[in-house]
Amino acid sequence: MTADITLFVNPAAGRGRGVRAVGPAARVLRDAGYAVRTVLGTDAADALRRAREAVAGGAGALVAVGGDGLVSLALRAVAGTEVPLGVVAVGTGNDYARANGLPVRDPAAAARLIARSLKEDGGRPLDLGRTGDGTYFGTVLASGLDSRVNDRGNRMRLPVGGLRYDLALVAELAALRTVPYRLRLDDGPVREVEATLIAVGNGSSYGGGMRICPGARADDGLFDVTVVGPCRRGTLLRVFPRVYRGTHLSHPAVSVLRAARVTLEAPGATGYADGEPLGPLPVTAETVPGAVRLLGAR
């Protein structure tokens, strides 16, 4: 491993904030004595390939400059390696950075923290989730209502930004239905569960601050599994704002389970991890303790 740092950049993050963040972050890292190179990709697959090449080439650290989508790719590139990850969070949601106490939309502050952590502790070991196809995730695996909102939002061309998903939520609430899940935790029995959604949290939040799994910790080897049972549309509308504070867990329709391995099956349901599509259920996810060393994490 060398003193070279690879900046892994999404130029489209935060409507151009990714590009604008490169300069301040690179200056801070160079002033701290590190050589800095930049990696871009033509699309997600190309970007992931380039990030993995940088990791395999012995980069001193991979630093993701962008939002949660880019961080998700970066996690896949460094998971299980000795190369630590830095995050310069300049996207729209920045859930992974927020959950781990990292600066948001302050590239210079994030870079200072990365440089200090590289010199002092080399990063904090944190868990990741991993699905059966080998996809790693840092925040939440979503299914049910929240994945249908993602499906619909991704199909919409307008409006841009987070408002698109707010409108997608309104549309999905109009057609609210429960999903017949088959849920298995670790080596336990299969449970038949009617639920509005099930979220498997390695981290606490998704969707730009919705704390769907507020008690989830990325250092305990376990997922927090939030199950929202059947509820009326009006009830969901009243409870939904509480998700941003993480106080929805007190509602009788909500329960939390904990496990190191979770299998979800449901007809016609899609899974999303870190906001990225996994494809139709079934899906099995397991925790991988200490799979990433995150620079500057609290």
Rank of each mutant, 00 (worst) to 15 (best):
A59F: 00
Y34K: 13
L40N: 12
R261F: 10
L141Y: 12
V83P: 03
I114E: 03
G271K: 12
A269T: 15
S117E: 07
S205E: 04
D274E: 10
G268I: 06
G122L: 01
I114C: 02
V83C: 09
E82M: 03
R164E: 10
T42N: 13
V149Q: 08
Y136P: 06
V87R: 00
R258N: 04
E172T: 08
A3L: 12
V160I: 04
G60P: 11
T178F: 07
R232H: 14
G246P: 07
L118P: 05
E286F: 03
T235V: 15
P280W: 01
S205P: 05
D46C: 12
D68Y: 02
E286T: 11
L7N: 11
V90Y: 00
A109E: 01
G91F: 01
N150I: 03
G268D: 15
R52Y: 08
A13N: 12
A97E: 00
R49L: 09
P103D: 00
L85W: 03
A61N: 00
A115K: 03
T131M: 01
D46Y: 09
G69E: 04
G208D: 04
R30C: 10
A44R: 15
E276Y: 10
D106V: 00
L75E: 05
A171F: 09
L7E: 04
N100L: 13
G279N: 08
G229D: 10
D274C: 08
G57Q: 12
H251L: 06
G60S: 13
G162T: 12
T287P: 06
N100T: 13
N94W: 06
A45F: 00
V283Y: 01
D220K: 00
L169P: 04
L113T: 01
R261H: 10
E172A: 05
N154K: 08
T247K: 07
N150C: 15
V28S: 04
A297C: 11
T2E: 14
R184D: 06
P11T: 06
L185A: 11
D220A: 02
D133S: 13
R50D: 13
T135V: 12
